[in-house]
């Protein structure tokens, strides 16, 4: 059920996004930083599912909160003439790789165990 809702959401979102009006180039930096923040939260969510401590409230608050906060930081950086968004991207991508590492380790462990079990069965 969760997977179905994710797929439907992705398809509808893609359709809306393709028909949406173009955003001015100056503001596209805000959108991109928001996307990075949201992606980080998504990977974090997957990692927490694997660790079995997933919480919907934390996920949603992280999803929207991080996006809005990073946009605000970018705006502030533009006002201060400092590229704060670079720091935000750095932190988000770093966390993303961490979470990806957790996910990767989990699945590799799982598959190796399955493979090992099959191997043992054959023997």
């Amino acid at each position: 059920m969760i997977y179905i809702s994710i797929v439907i959401g992705c398809i509808i979102g893609a359709l809306i996004g393709m028909n949406a009006p173009i955003i001015p180039y100056t503001y596209s930096i805000y959108l991109s930083i928001a996307i990075i923040a949201a992606l980080d939260t998504v990977f974090g969510g997957i990692a927490s599912v694997i660790n079995k401590n997933f919480d919907l409230k934390i996920f949603l608050s992280g999803f929207f909160g991080n996006a809005i906060l990073s946009m605000l930081l970018t705006y502030l950086g533009e006002k201060l003439n400092v590229d704060i968004y670079l720091a935000a991207i750095f932190v988000f991508v770093w966390r993303m790789f961490n979470n990806l590492g957790i996910i990767r380790r989990y699945y590799i462990e799982k598959w190796t165990n399955q493979f090992q079990a099959k191997w043992n069965e054959k023997k």
Partner: peptide, 12 residues
């Protein structure tokens, strides 16, 4: 969440 994420991504 997935809808919003993909929408923003495709717009971008």
């Amino acid at each position: 969440a997935a809808l919003i994420l993909t929408m923003v991504m495709f717009t971008q």
